[in-house]
Design a protein around this nucleic acid. Sequence first.
DNA 1: CGGACAAGCTGA
DNA 2: CAGCTTGTCCGG
Length: 583
Amino acid sequence: MVRVLPDQPAIDKTFDYLVPDAVGDQVRVGTMVRVALHGRRVGGWVVADDVEPPAGVTLRPLAKVSGWGPPADVIDLAHWAAWRWSGRTAQFLRTASPDHVVRHGPAAGRPPPPIHVPDDEVIAEALERDRAVLRLPPGADPYGVALAAAARAARAGGHALILVPSIAGARYLGLRLRRAGLPVAVMPRDWALAATGATVVGARAAAWAPVRHLAAVVVLDEHDEGWQQEQAPTWNARDVAAERARRAGAPCVLVSPTPSLEALTWGELVAPSRAAERDGWPIVEVVDRRDEDPGRAGLFSERLAATVRSGRRVLCVLNRKGRARLLACTTCGDLARCERCDSSVVLDDDGAFACRRCDAVRPPVCLACGGRTFKNLRAGVTRVREELEALARVPVVEVTGDTRADELPDAAVFVGTEAVLHQVTSADVVAFLDFDQELLAPRYRAAEEALALLARAARIVGGRSGGGRLLVQTRLPEHEVIQAALLADPARASRSEAERRAVLRFPPVSALAAVSGAGAEAFVAALRAGGSPSPAGSPVEVMGPSEGVWLVRAPDHATLLDRLAATPRPPERLRVAVDPLRL
DNA sequence: CGGACAAGCTGA
DNA sequence: CAGCTTGTCCGG
């Protein structure tokens, strides 16, 4: 008799079935099966075997054994993740399952030859720890860490799990490891090979890959916000991988040029020498815009003008979309604002004013004088491209999130949103036209995000030894984030950021969840009622609502998640985002 | 999720 | 009161 969790989003409940003798040898914890449930057949996973079914129910036999599923340790991990991100076990098991039916493992390959791993003290030191945060500068090649981890896992009689933020990056790393002689499963394609035994390389979903005898875990660019899924449950592949390592007793190395505060709280920092780290960061040229005449300055300093005219390949970053972001009435000069909440409004696709905060839409008419024409106060990327072209006297190409990388014309000067750093792979200089926008963004993680942005740009231009250069226009030249990049010392930024988070009680000093949706009000009421009789002593606070979102805060994850799990969910739609990146 | 069944509504 | 909609419950 086995316990089966149906693969149905709304059924978070298990049912027991008889295992027919004929298929007994194919069924274990994790096996994917089909079962009869309430008059229909549904897929599901065996989540426990040798179970004692509740009295008074007549069991039906399994309808079919579909194929291999996640190993038992991943089934346990999915139960944990359902608690950790207030989700449902089935959602995680779907991510952990092969996308095609798997009935046989791949043919056994030749035993791998001994692999040569170059000596590297810093990497070796990181792999000695149970939980290491390895701070490698942006210019460093992460291949050495992956190879050393795979070799270490092999010595321990097991396999390594290596997570890379992008799918393309994972494929490339997989190829290089395979060339070194290792059996490598690149996820999600090689699910069956991973299950039989290989070094496993992949992107976010690979945190759920089957790994035989997990013996080392590496997460590259652990600070990358892409590790977290945007939809609820907002699970984070870095945290899943770290928990897997903990459960397996395997070393876990989180690698980043700019480690997150979460990582620094979790593990021990390992970093190369100051000289080596400095070499891996580009030269940072800070242009202090306070010296300029504010009326005339625009977005282009003298330094920037000289740089775009120098003939070098320059990427200019301005995180604003093409349409105007701040409008003023041409008649009276009043700013275009929302009638309801007073926030600034932007022109939507239909030419109406749309509020960016409260969703209100109104005709484009000045509230003060009734004027109907407006001028841009802040140019978006489209306008800036034209101005920059005039300044540079060479063609300037605009890049936004919508631009297709393979259709990008070649040019010496590009301008775009952050997307330009994803789509153009090499340059001599990356220039941030208005870095204060990153530093002062109204998000609690703005400082970390700003430093990560500099690190991303640093990868494109390369370290200082190769002439890599960043140009940062700012009115905050003393800001710790800019100083951290300038001195190639990310700790400068994390120290001050840690203090700020402690004062404001933001993560990692606390644990947060954002609750929204039609059922949020009822859920939050139940959440408040579920606490200790005296709310004053309750460690779980509920704040809000602000724009329909409540924020739940607790001193730590266990307190927060136990309370969320103990609160009954209303039948209406409810989104619970644990560890929200934006508030 | 989706089928079963009960309770509620409508029109003759 | 048949015939339909809407809501709630529950599955092995």
